Amino acid sequence: MINLTENAAAHIGNYLKNRGKGAGIRIGVKTSGCSGLAYVLEFVDDIDVHDVVFEHFGVKVFVDPKSLVYLDGLEMDYVKNGLNEGFEFNNPNKKGECGCGESFTV
């Protein structure tokens, strides 16, 4: 299961609306950084038949089965802290991360 907070869903929904197309957003992982894995976000225009789909607050989240192993239980939020804003990932599978927060291990 992948969860979006209401803030994350609203932010993604606004981007999809301004973009004028897209079925939702895809969350995945790729090999990167010093800890091993990094999150990947992209708009979904073409749905893959193997994708697992979750929907929260009217926004669809697509995840490929290989990434779901690392992301199951993930909560994605959109936060603003002073001048900084962005997505925050609360992943119960994460065992550690690099010092800069760029990548994580499971």
Rank of each mutant, 00 (worst) to 15 (best):
F62M: 08
F89G: 00
V61P: 06
E42F: 12
V59E: 07
C98Y: 01
G36R: 11
N93V: 05
L68T: 03
V40S: 15
E55I: 15
P65R: 11
K95I: 14
L83G: 03
D72G: 05
Y39S: 10
A10F: 02
L41H: 11
H56Y: 11
F87L: 11
H11K: 13
G13F: 04
D64P: 07
V79K: 07
G22R: 13
V29S: 13
N93T: 05
V106I: 10
L68K: 06
A23H: 09
G36D: 12
F57T: 02
E6S: 11
A9L: 02
E88H: 05
D64A: 07
C34P: 05
D72V: 03
R26Y: 13
E97F: 00
V59R: 07
F57L: 08
E55S: 14
K17E: 12
S103R: 01
K95E: 10
L68Q: 03
G82F: 04
F104P: 03
V44D: 10
S32E: 14
F104Q: 03
S103N: 01
D46L: 12
G20Y: 15
V52G: 04
E88I: 09
D45P: 07
E85A: 04
L37T: 02
C98V: 03
G22C: 10
K21V: 09
G20L: 10
M1A: 10
R26S: 06
K80F: 01
L37R: 13
S32L: 10
V63A: 01
L4S: 06
K17N: 05
D72S: 12
Y70H: 13
